[in-house]
Nucleic acid binder design. Structure first.
Lengths: 366, 366
DNA sequence: TTGTAAGCGTTATCAC
DNA sequence: GTGATAACGCTTACAA
């Protein structure tokens, strides 16, 4: 944004934003064809003129201030409708020093867990008259930083994000006093909505032990990601308590990551006869690997995965899962954020939700 | 927005936006505690003062204009960094009469088909320096209208949407000259990116016929939705050409819709021995119903569904699907939109992409 | 190369 | 109850 730039023969060379600026430049340079009406967008001034009142009155009338003659209100409304007037939100927000927009920065738009969160946030936000800008950090601290910059520039009312872990990014928001709520992953000192997945992982592992599996493995997410670490920790809690051997792999929170981890685990001298999987995207890869290894779910190998995917009941036998309250996470986060927007003073608040083990056929030894 | 309002003892009663206004009012009313620094956000003026230059120079320096003394640029950058200055995007856009924001209004954030589109849009937009506001119309013309209003107010640079069918909504954008691109579903006279799903449905149906199934049914989406109609039409094209009996049901684009439709079809005097399903969410419900009816996929009943869901290969036998190029739809739509933003004059352009039949086990009579 | 100043479209603070 | 008018923070002619 404010990085170094280079000028070459009138063309700016550099980062992405330059492309945009070139485009804008191009646009404004191009004169409209003579026959084409220079279409002016109606402003509050036009409405005022047409209604024969001042802009102040138009503003008051359209914003439902009590102190306006009903007759004028009607006239103003009519004028506005005739001109197809839509108030300019930019000007309004600039003046009000407020924007009815929340930024939601999540790690993966295509992960149902996060889209469910998005829905929760959106529903609450919409009820408050706010819009939600969804941004995809793609688990990249750099993209996260960029989106936080955008949020800062656009002066959004608040930010909800699943932190990548680079706390310096979030610092920027704190410095500016922009309210922030973290979801799914913790934030050093701030509002957050978390799920006790360590406990859930422990319970799931205990469930596998109780079901009679002997060598229980774990396929978890990237070592840097907090949820991945937590789920692994919960697994280890249970494994140690039961005095069993530990057997685990990290991988990307993707099908491919799950598949590779599984292939590796199955190649161990003493392979696992049960697996705890940290996320449903990975589960897809894991199941592929198991299928290729001709292992029968439940019978040959027990499986529990985090996230209650829609398809979990379609496979045979159906998948035992750890269901996370994703929608509720979004709701709570939005509520926390609005509370913070309303009053910045109270100390940080952490909401911890519980995950729920849903037992199905994939953990029945048969 | 400009609807009727009621005043009751100082409280505004009415739609959602009023809640927001109340909140804002509340907020500004609340005086900050005496001890709390009224934290001022640094403006371009502060930077100018600190760097000992004019605001114009700051603006030029930070925007990489060539005509600035390198020494000053350094000084300005330093000052900006020290003050934690972030340009106010609202003011900038108000002045430039441009916003680097696209609105993407889709029918369902939780549908992988649409999130894949979102990714395509996002990637192209980001490369151009634009942000994307994702909005969820939930298949509701009313929500669509509301989001279009927001887009209009915020003066977004353009809109990409999967139209609910209420053309009057899109009219508003046209009136204002806001560039629009429709995806997935057609728009009377405008840019659009479509998939030839009628053809795809025909091919899929022919595939079922060729595979030896006799009574082929179709589970499609709501009668009002264009894609649902198209897919049904393609099915009928093939069925008629083969002189087979038609057998179909409409339902919501949801698992529950698919399930109910299937239950009904199976209750027919002469139930189908194969099904074409219009969307993967519905497919989940269909498969549940088939499983409850103890029908074996492929062998007892052939199944093809639209959308190549990630789990399609996990079930047994794996699902034959019609894969839609969702990501590419998003890319193309964004490109069309940028072209339109750059030059509004050319006539509307329609891009039609092909869907691809992916044959798997669920259509093998076995 | 730099500074001055005029807006961009609203809303809010004054007077009337 | 209504109307001037001054901000809001930025960009960009136009001067210097």
């Amino acid at each position: 944004m404010s990085g170094p730039r280079t000028e070459v023969a009138g063309y700016r060379v550099g980062g992405r934003l330059d492309q945009r600026e070139d485009r804008l430049a191009t646009r404004s340079r191009r004169a409209p064809p003579a026959w084409q009406q220079e279409e002016k967008v109606a402003t509050i001034n036009d409405v005022a003129r047409r209604a024969g009142v001042s802009t102040a009155t138009v503003s008051r009338a359209l914003n439902g201030k009590s102190t306006v003659d009903p007759a004028l209100v009607t006239r103003v409304r009519a004028a506005a409708k005739e001109l197809g007037y839509h108030p300019n939100g930019l000007a309004r927000n600039l003046r009000r020093q407020e924007t009815a927009v929340l930024a939601l920065i999540i790690a993966d738009v295509e992960n149902p867990f996060f889209t469910a969160i998005a829905r929760g946030v959106e529903d609450v936000a919409q009820a408050e008259g706010y819009s939600v800008v969804l941004c995809n950090s793609d688990e990249s601290a750099e993209k996260e930083r960029r989106y936080i910059d955008v949020a800062l520039q656009e002066r959004v009312a608040g930010v909800i994000l699943s932190p990548t872990g680079a706390t310096s990014n979030v610092e920027r928001l704190h410095e500016r006093g922009t309210p922030v709520v973290a979801v799914d992953r913790p934030l050093p000192a701030g509002d957050q909505v978390l799920v006790d997945t360590r406990l859930a992982a422990r319970e799931a592992t205990n469930h596998l032990i109780a079901a009679g599996y002997r060598r229980i493995g774990c396929v978890t997410g990237p070592a840097g990601v907090r949820t991945a670490n937590d789920r692994l920790a919960g697994y280890r809690d249970a494994i140690r308590a039961a005095n069993r051997p530990e057997l685990f792999r990290h991988g990307q929170y993707w099908a491919a990551g799950g598949k590779q981890a599984t292939v590796e685990l199955l190649a161990e001298p003493e392979p696992p006869d049960a697996l705890l999987i940290a996320n449903s995207a990975m589960a897809i890869g894991v199941l592929e690997a198991l299928s290729e290894a001709k292992l029968r779910l439940g019978r040959d190998i027990g499986v529990v995965t985090f996230d209650d995917a829609a398809w979990a009941t379609l496979i045979d036998p159906p998948l035992t899962v750890v269901a996370q309250p994703a929608y509720e996470i979004g709701e709570q986060a939005a509520k926390l954020l609005f509370a913070r927007i309303g009053d910045p003073s109270p100390p940080p608040h952490t909401v911890t939700l519980a995950a729920r083990l849903v037992t199905r056929g994939s953990t029945l030894r048969g």
